[in-house]
């Protein structure tokens, strides 16, 4: 059993949970994810790790209220309650974790984050920023109230750019437009972009980066059951080869991902999910 130590609604549809999971906290590295199952009858839900504290044995995840399971995981669980299962860390850490100091020193990173994907950008940006690597972060949302992790990210990068569709704060427009502006108008140079967010956002980030000539890494949030390579539900075509997001990823070269297939595959259980929501 894994105790919930903190719960906070970051916006009306995204909750942050700090969970006691000492083994996961000790082993987690930036880029990895975990799987939570709320109770005996729950689904196994993959969630990207947004922070880990090995000393206190805690991990932080953010959960977006999308389907019946995520609603239940947030609405029915409060501080002091326990999730039945928290397993991880899963997937490979971000590639920069294995870079030499020389390699790292030569990098200039830009992150593009959208929605729920903003939270897992935090441990990555922080890891790089702590090591003196140049990091800019662009986060986007429909409107000001939906932006999350602005404070945390503010302290984990050189420049934080907020973008909103309605212009209620920061740049009016999407994150990729901000990136184009930074590169084309302000002459920023980036050696690498990491895009984490909804698949449609990552698809356009990959296209924009292609245009700008910036290598782009994306974090695939595919459907999965076990997270250890057993089920193959998370199959994704990367450069014409079938990969498993859980064990080969979750991070891939965004320019090689078959986005239309990935988006279609992520909707595979939509009818079942809709039925479950209606039953709720």
């Amino acid at each position: 059993m894994f105790k919930i130590l903190e719960k906070q609604m970051l916006n009306p549809v995204i909750a942050k949970m700090v969970i006691e999971a000492p083994r996961v906290a000790k082993a987690a590295l930036p880029g990895q994810f975990l799987i939570v199952r709320d109770g005996e009858k729950g689904e196994r839900i993959p969630l990207t790790i947004s922070d880990s504290d090995p000393a206190n044995g805690t991990v932080t995840v953010v959960i977006q209220l999308i389907g019946a399971s995520t609603h239940r995981m947030v609405e029915d669980y409060n501080v002091g309650d326990c999730y039945a299962d928290v397993v991880g860390p899963l997937g490979n850490p971000s590639d920069f974790v294995n870079m030499s100091p020389e390699e790292l020193g030569a990098q200039r990173y830009v992150f593009i984050a959208g929605g729920l994907g903003t939270a897992p950008v935090y441990p990555q940006a922080k890891w790089l920023h702590d090591r003196g690597v140049a990091v800019d972060v662009i986060i986007g949302a429909r409107t000001k109230d939906l932006l999350i992790y602005t404070e945390e990210l503010g302290g984990a990068c050189d420049n934080l750019y907020l973008c909103t569709d309605d212009g209620s704060v920061g740049f009016r427009g999407v994150g990729t437009a901000k990136l184009e502006q930074l590169v084309n108008e302000e002459g920023r140079k980036y050696t690498r972009c990491v895009a984490i967010g909804p698949m449609i956002m990552m698809k356009f980030a990959a296209l924009t980066c292609g245009k700008l000539g910036i290598p782009v890494v994306v974090s695939m949030n595919s459907l999965m059951v076990d997270g250890t390579g057993m089920c193959g539900a998370c199959r994704v075509s990367v450069g014409g080869e079938t990969k498993f997001s859980c064990v080969d990823g979750p991070e891939f070269d965004g320019s090689l991902v078959d986005w239309d297939e990935a988006m279609r595959r992520s909707r595979q259980y939509k009818p079942e999910e809709t039925a479950a929501m209606e039953k709720k």
Partner: peptide, 13 residues
């Protein structure tokens, strides 16, 4: 990789 193609592992699990 079409939707509706599963491994027996996924289906049975």
């Amino acid at each position: 990789n079409l939707s509706g193609v599963f491994s027996a592992n996924e289906f049975l699990t």
